[in-house]
Design a protein around this nucleic acid. Structure first.
Lengths: 182, 182
DNA sequence: AAATTTATGTCAGTCATGTTGACATATCTT
DNA sequence: AAGATATGTCAACATGACTGACATAAATTT
């Protein structure tokens, strides 16, 4: 008969969790873990809602995003970035090609390669989605000064694995350092 | 010998995209959009890897996390937080109950309710996963001073929708203000 | 030139996790 | 007693992952 209807037990989240903890509490960062969950949920939710109107899903968005941002991306590079199998990519890529959001061009150095480019139609879609997400980001940084925004960028960059970077990550972090320590 | 055509076209990402853009460029925040994608991918990747050993997926992790953090959570509240259907929750919750990671207790005010609690076994799992993610967060904030970390928290909080908050979000943001502005 | 490797595409089947719709049961509210 | 609410469950389906096998064209190696 524990009454507890939610209000009592946990209550307000603490920055460095301790709970009834005995030995190995280690100051887990529950608050940031949770904030990341909610922030990302709502962040991708912006795009998800709009994508429905096009009959597309998140997978299509991710492909469109990276093809737009890195024109001439090879299929193999895209597989590395998205970390999915070619069979999985194949389905969404085929749809995007068929419906004219992306075009392929044969590589000139290596004619086996299919370099990917967004069409005007594709640019429009990806721009619209980025606009929604940009609105949210702008709202979020409205009360943060430029140095603070740079701190946020630094945090996000430092959250990313840097061992075994794909081509896109090499571009984001100047391709010099592959060391996981900073 | 992949001779990387990749380098030419897009080149380094810019903080405020302009591209060949004509009219409506609006300073989209491509850089932060992309950093969020990679940061979250690697962040959840930590847990994903560990979960495989238990035969669980992300869905199980999310349930365990919130049940642990908010002991006595009602099934209905959990559905609100996760934003999934009861049928979808039912499957993973049943597994977690059957395998002894979570227990249910009948509400004493309302005996229809099933209040959820993590068992010691459940605490151990969720703590292990939070440990992995905490390690990543600690690495990420190692070069950021306390004020900067607070800025990161502020950013993440401000990224979250505050209209229509569920019970958990009401707890996170003191339940007073439902205004989307802070 | 022939053999092998690489880049890409595709068929077939499976799994995890989400969905809708319908319905059952216990319990609380009116 | 009747209705609403909290939960659970059955069945069917969609999306987006997965593995494994195989096909083709083009580059590379022998």
């Amino acid at each position: 008969m524990t009454d507890i209807n939610f209000s009592g037990p946990a209550g307000a989240p603490d920055s460095k969790g301790v709970e009834g903890a005995g030995a190995h509490s280690r100051d887990l960062r529950w608050d940031i873990i949770e904030l990341l969950f909610f922030a990302y949920r709502d962040f991708v939710g912006d795009a998800d809602h709009e994508l429905e109107a096009f009959g597309f899903g998140r997978a299509h968005h991710r492909v469109m995003h990276f093809v737009h941002r890195y024109p001439g991306l090879k299929v193999a590079d895209l597989l590395d970035v998205l970390r999915i199998t070619k069979q999985s990519l194949g389905r969404v890529l085929k749809q995007l090609l068929d419906e004219g959001y992306i075009v392929q061009k044969t590589g000139n150095n290596d004619r086996r390669q299919r370099l990917l480019y967004a069409t005007a139609k594709g640019e429009a879609l990806v721009g619209k989605l980025a606009g929604l997400q940009t609105d949210r980001i702008n709202r979020a940084v409205a009360d943060i000064d430029p140095a603070g925004v740079e701190t946020v960028r630094q945090f996000l960059r430092a959250m990313i694995d840097r061992d075994d970077p794909d081509k896109v990550l090499e571009t984001i972090f100047g391709s010099g350092s592959k060391k996981p320590r900073e």
